[in-house]
Write a protein that binds this DNA or RNA. Structure first.
Length: 502
RNA sequence: GGGGCCGUAGCUCAGUUGGUUAGAGCAUCGGACUUUUAAUCCGUUGGUCCUGGGUUCGAGUCCCAGCGGCCCCA
């Protein structure tokens, strides 16, 4: 393209607005900084006070005082305003933001050359006097400026930030900088995980790590990711649950163990499902599912405290109330309340299922019941509510109720119609376990079965596993719940995405 | 896997019934300003309208396919 011949004077002939040219402008400033003998990529910078701490100090300074303390802050330039020979910055660190004032006269001619090279997004260190501007804004009046890192990319819109959900996920680092409440939500996630560990370690649980590469993906009903080990020339799968190895550790006498770890399920993606997600599983020898109810409640309440979650709030269209103790309701009772059927009578259940549009022909009575529960009861459970005592045949790893082999000692914790936790009195009878594996496997494609034969696990049980309670909690869902997020992608830092063409 | 919605400048968004050379704000660049608050004011630059086909005298706009995202369902 020929240059426009009617360019006004002082206006460069070349274009400036493309991404490449925006970068070029920043690279020229980078070169200027280097030419002044400064390192535009900075280095160790000791003695920085967090901005939140500086702000606390500032609150104690009189508005018209000019003898405030000297402070050193460091952070990213979020906003920049020039007023003649003054430049105002909004500087952000992990704890907050504060205004910086740079005056040509105050910093001197050499530093002023550096000031003129500042762009939005640059990282700088500031030494200066803490006080208040004439218009009443807390301000660090800079005496010194240290360049810490140049940003050569243009940041998002300074007011709207990144809005496009795709860009927010692909460039999470920008979302963390600019997104409203994004950093706070991920910090809350860290606090919740810390709280989970605190509750468990206070109860003398050991945190352990099981294998993520396994021969058999057991402990849940899900399709695994497959991989291959070259040296051993053997197929492997990524784990879909933590359960069976933690129970081996109960056999091994560790008695109280938990694992907080990533599991992988090769299935659909939705606002509640990411192919890799974080599970907590905890096992306590000589406990049962009631022990785990108390533990679950403690974990959620401590997590809520850590995340500063209010006791009552609205989430996913449900009103939830965290006041303990959480409601406990029997599975059959809920089914009767919601559908009006007689849970003890398979024909009554089947009739209700048919009315709800569920296929019944040739299917196991407990599977029909389970589908009916999912279709009708779940959405009514605002919770939190512990749903107790599941049909035994959908619980192949669970101990049956004493005197009632049709009912399994299992609970699920529901909140806003969503399963948040799942716990059993663990089945420790190796013969029954082996039989249940076999019956589960009969006539079902392996992918759809809850159970896969795991002879090594059976052998472990044969050596004697203590009676125990076991608990599983979906950490991502727990964080969603406690932070009010409506999509798992809002609580997973780097959710899975299709690659984007360059 | 099926259905719906969306994709326009680095970012946030307009773009009428298919009709002139596709616009705005921010950012950039130049200028004014030593107290600004998304600073303001004047000027300036910036486009693979997601990609590829098709219909049409004419497509950002309509149709088809693909790519990417969001939502619903399985």
């Amino acid at each position: 393209m020929p240059a426009n011949s009617s360019q006004p004077p002082g206006s460069p002939a070349e274009a400036r607005g493309t991404a490449a040219q925006l970068e070029q402008a920043r690279r020229e400033k980078l070169a200027t900084i280097a030419a002044l003998g400064l390192d535009p990529w900075g280095g160790r910078f000791d003695g920085v006070t967090p901005i939140a701490t500086v702000r606390q100090t500032g609150e104690g300074i009189a508005k018209d005082a000019d003898d405030g303390p000297t402070v050193r802050v460091a952070g990213r330039i979020m906003l920049q305003r020039t007023a003649g020979s003054l430049v105002f910055l909004s500087l952000a660190d992990r704890t907050g933001r504060i205004q910086i004032m740079l005056g040509k006269k105050q910093v001197g001619p050499e530093a002023w050359q550096v000031v003129r090279c500042l762009d939005l997004g640059d990282l700088v260190g500031i030494d200066g006097r803490l006080g208040w501007s004439k218009t009443g804004e807390m301000t660090v009046f800079a005496a010194g400026l240290t360049f810490l890192a140049k940003s050569i990319e243009t940041p998002p819109d300074k007011y709207h930030g990144l809005v496009d959900p795709e860009l927010r996920q692909r460039m999470r680092y920008l979302d963390l900088i600019h997104g409203e409440g994004v950093r706070e939500r991920f910090v809350a996630r860290c606090r919740i995980v810390e709280a989970v560990r605190r509750v468990l370690t206070a109860r003398d649980y050991l945190e352990v790590e099981g294998p993520t590469l396994q021969e058999t993906a057991g402990g849940a009903a899900a399709r695994p990711f497959t991989t291959h080990h070259n040296a051993l020339d053997m197929p492997l799968v990524l784990r879909i649950a933590l359960e069976l190895h933690l129970k081996r550790l109960l056999v091994g006498g560790l008695e109280r163990v938990f694992e907080l770890g990533r599991v992988y399920r090769n299935e659909g993606i939705s606002p509640r499902h990411n192919p890799e997600f974080t599970m907590l599983e905890a096992y306590e020898a000589y406990g049962n599912y009631e022990t785990m109810m108390d533990l679950t409640e403690a974990i959620i309440l401590e997590g809520a405290k850590a995340a500063k979650t209010p006791t009552q709030f609205s989430w996913m269209g449900h009103q939830v109330d965290l006041t303990p103790p959480f409601r406990r309701a029997k599975y059959d009772d809920l089914l009767r309340e919601v559908t009006g059927c007689d849970p003890a009578d398979p024909e009554s259940v089947a009739a209700a299922a048919t009315a709800a549009g569920i296929e019944t022909a040739g299917r196991h009575a407990d599977v029909i019941k389970s589908d009916l529960f999912e279709a009708t009861v779940e959405e009514t459970l605002s919770g939190p509510v512990f749903v107790l005592d599941y049909p035994a045949s959908v619980c192949p790893l669970t101990k049956r109720k004493a005197g009632n082999p049709a009912v399994a000692e299992r609970f699920e914790l529901y909140v806003a119609g969503m399963e948040l936790a799942n716990a059993y009195t663990e089945l420790n009878d190796p013969d029954l376990q082996e039989e249940l594996f076999r019956t589960q496997l009969a006539g079902l494609p392996a992918d759809e079965s809850m159970a896969r034969m795991d002879t090594d696990f059976i052998r472990a049980l044969r050596h004697g596993m203590p009676p125990a309670g076991g608990l599983g909690v979906g950490i991502d869902r727990l964080v969603m719940f406690l932070t009010g997020a409506e999509s798992i992608r809002d609580v997973v830092l780097f959710p899975i995405l299709r690659p984007r063409a360059e």
